[in-house]
């Protein structure tokens, strides 16, 4: 009888050890995966990000209505006009981010003059098709003296959301007003569609 009982106990102990080992292994794998994911998230947020944008107004000393590169590097948001030195602000100073949409005529002044000169109202027909939708990104930030600024950027459609996501990922204060900006976004789109 004893001979039968002892091997059974040994077998149970062995099973227990095997299960514990397996559990430990699973826990280790989970920890490893989580750490790797956290590491990649941190790398993603600290990775420099840049996008083509048109500065409409309000961003520090940058010239209005000029095209350049809007970039995020570590804790600063920069705008560099093509061929000029960049201007930057601290992401921590950004209080709100609002996203809207607007349809604009393309081609600028030369196109406008060309359309006006076209005979038999040809310019009007061209205007019907020569418009494009853009994302309008509005940032509310505070300068070193505490003064509030409103910077407006025009981005290609769909890119505003990416910039907003990047900003909210890097700044805690920005994310707190996301809902409001979403409402605003809806309002802007609604009024443009009218």
């Amino acid at each position: 009888m004893d001979c039968l009982v002892v091997p059974q106990n040994q077998e149970n102990a062995c099973r227990f050890h095997r299960r514990a080992g397996m559990g430990l292994l699973v826990a280790l794998i989970c920890c490893g995966l989580t750490a790797a994911a956290q590491n990649s998230t941190r790398q993603e947020t600290s990775k420099p990000f840049s996008i083509r944008a048109t500065h409409l107004m309000g961003f520090e000393s940058a010239k209005s209505n000029c095209t350049g590169t809007l970039s995020i590097q570590y804790d600063s948001l920069q705008f560099q006009q093509t061929g000029k030195t960049s201007v930057h602000i601290n992401i921590g100073s950004v209080r709100n981010v609002f996203l809207g949409e607007e349809s604009r005529q393309v081609g600028g002044l030369p196109m406008t003059l060309g359309k006006a000169a076209a005979p038999y109202g040809g310019g009007r027909v061209v205007s019907l098709f020569s418009h494009k939708k853009y994302d309008i990104l509005t940032l509310e930030y505070v300068d070193s003296d505490g003064g509030i600024h409103g910077a407006i950027f025009q981005l290609d459609k769909g890119q505003g959301e990416i910039v907003k996501h990047e900003l909210t990922a890097r700044g805690e204060t920005v994310s707190s007003r996301t809902d409001q900006s979403m409402k605003q976004n809806a309002a802007e789109v609604r009024y443009e569609n009218k």
Partner: peptide, 9 residues
Amino acid sequence: DLSYSFQAA
């Protein structure tokens, strides 16, 4: 109705 971009502008 006024969008925030208008207020800021």
